[in-house]
């Protein structure tokens, strides 16, 4: 059977604006992926354990509150603590350009700012999976 791409879509932190996360979830589904949607107010710990139990290929997070510099790297840190290096992690939201190099250095492979088409995110995921298909 073909290998399905599984993606965890999560909203870390307290920000309640989930329009973007929900639109992405639907777009990924329409691109044939299996999307585990975990909803609002997720701690980095919840995101990482869910990603393990669900055996996802991708973690996609969205933050509009400005807490990305704290929460995104924290997720990467937890993944590293558990020796997980084969999950593609991407983030999106209101993220100033100046912050992007730091997030990438922390291991966030793709950062998508307002106006990014969902097709670009789909293509990025398909082109950057860390696990063989």
């Amino acid at each position: 059977m073909e290998r399905k791409i599984r993606v965890l879509v999560a909203k870390p932190g307290l920000d309640g604006h989930d329009r973007g996360a929900k639109v992405i979830a639907r777009a990924l589904r329409d691109a044939g992926m299996e999307v585990v949607y975990t909803g609002l107010r997720q701690t980095p710990e919840q995101i990482v354990t869910a990603s393990i139990q669900e055996d996802v290929d991708v973690i996609a997070m969205s933050i509009l509150s400005g807490a990305h510099n704290h929460l995104f790297p924290r997720v990467m840190e937890l993944l590293r603590e558990k020796n997980i290096d084969d999950v593609l992690v991407i983030g999106g939201g209101v993220i100033p350009d100046d912050d992007i190099p730091g997030l990438k250095a922390a291991g966030i492979a793709g950062v998508f700012t307002p106006g990014s088409p969902t097709s670009e995110i789909v293509a990025f995921i398909k082109g950057n999976l860390k696990r063989g298909s």
């Binding site: 399905k4 979830a25 639907r26 990924l28 589904r29 329409d30 691109a31 044939g32 992926m33 299996e34 999307v35 585990v36 949607y37 975990t38 909803g39 997720q42 701690t43 710990e45 919840q46 354990t49 869910a50 139990q53 669900e54 055996d55």
Partner: peptide, 27 residues
């Protein structure tokens, strides 16, 4: 499309960090 949105987990996420619980969504 063959894709799926697996949303049942949302309502169980409080157990996510409990090591005695394992939750898996299947399409």
């Amino acid at each position: 499309t063959g894709g799926a949105i697996l949303g049942d987990r949302i309502r169980m996420q409080r157990h996510a960090v409990d090591e005695g619980v394992y939750i898996r969504s299947l399409a």
